[in-house]
């Protein structure tokens, strides 16, 4: 079942990508294809990054209804960007290289995540406590963002606003390459750790007695999550429930939590959902900017179902 599920996910992702590239081609073929390929690259990166980050976070916290954004991680990225606008001013912010902005945001995020989340993950908290803490932190980061935004000149506020909502149709081209590098590296590391991650999912005690040094291992995994979330947030903005949706689907399809299967399956489904959604909206409904809303709606609904139905996904 596991292998078959993986093949299905792969086939769907490929098919969807082909449709995305090829459907309704008109006019200057080379130009349109290049445009679509770049867009596809952005969507693939985001799908993969969000899926892998969510699997990692769920594994180290031993619970399956967490996503990085329920823990407020993407809000942290937006806060970092807002702080940058605040300190540099809107013009200063806009005039520095997008890649440099991204690097600064990433550093702020890693620093804050290690300060805030590491103590929480050292020992496994109960699900309720973890959710509550995550929700509170998310609210905290968002309201801090709002507070800083108030202090900013109203004209510059627009710059911040652009960073606070998911937008799948305008991936900043300058970030495609750094995003690709970071996400490839991050996913590569996660793949290399797939067996360790299996062991970590048994919980700290079992993992320690199987030879994992828990605190360094959790720190490393959390670092990886932060990098992946930062990269995907920089590309399209915060996507709250996408990861949850994708990982729950992957687990359903493959019937396993083994990372050698779950990581690629989730990544492929992430790609299929994002690219498929975007293709449908572009060709079916015209208003392509609403994909974020639809994904959030479906993911949010699933989140409620999972909460209500216990932890069986």
């Amino acid at each position: 079942m596991a292998e078959r599920g993986l093949w299905i996910a792969g086939a769907v992702a490929l098919l969807v990508a082909a449709v995305f590239l090829g459907l309704g081609l008109r006019g200057n073929l080379a130009f349109v294809l290049e445009l679509r390929a770049l867009r596809l690259l952005g969507l693939v990166q985001v799908g993969v990054a969000v899926a892998v980050a969510t699997v990692l976070l769920q594994t180290v916290t031993a619970n399956r209804i967490l996503t990085p954004s329920v823990m407020g991680l993407d809000a942290l990225y937006v806060l970092g960007q807002t702080l940058l606008v605040f300190t540099l001013g809107g013009i200063g912010y806009a005039s520095i290289d997008a890649r440099l902005r991204f690097a600064c945001g990433l550093l702020v995020m890693i620093g804050m995540a290690l300060v805030v989340f590491l103590p929480l993950l050292r020992r496994r908290l109960s699900l309720t406590l973890l959710l509550l803490t995550g929700a509170v932190l998310g609210i905290l980061f968002r309201s801090l963002t709002a507070l800083v935004a108030r202090l900013i000149d109203p004209n510059e506020f627009a710059v911040v606003q652009g960073a606070s909502y998911a937008n799948f149709s305008a991936v900043p081209p300058a970030l495609l390459l750094p995003g690709l590098l970071l996400i490839t590296a991050g996913v590569g590391v996660a793949w290399a750790w797939r067996h360790r991650l299996d062991v970590m999912s048994l919980g700290p005690d079992a993992a320690v007695s199987l030879g994992i040094d828990w605190i360094p291992a959790v720190t490393a995994v959390l670092g990886l999550v932060v990098v992946l979330v930062a990269a995907s947030t920089a590309l399209v903005g915060p996507v709250a429930f996408l990861g949850l949706l994708v990982v729950a689907l992957a687990e359903r399809l493959t019937g396993t939590r083994r990372h050698a299967v779950l990581l690629p399956a989730a990544a492929l489904i992430g790609v299929a959902v994002l690219v498929g959604g975007q293709a449908t909206l572009q060709h079916g409904f015209g208003g392509a900017s609403t994909l974020g809303v639809i994904v959030e709606f479906a993911g949010g609904l699933l989140f409620l179902v999972l909460l209500a139905g216990g932890r069986r996904a």
């Binding site: 031993a62 999912s201 048994l202 919980g203 005690d205 079992a206 007695s209 199987l210 030879g211 687990e251 019937g255 396993t256 939590r257």
Partner: peptide, 17 residues
């Protein structure tokens, strides 16, 4: 250490799938 000592705890914890 994991090659010379192991423990089975009193409460074995969650196991998932």
């Amino acid at each position: 250490l994991a090659r010379s000592l192991t423990i089975m705890r009193q409460d074995t914890g969650p196991v998932g799938r």
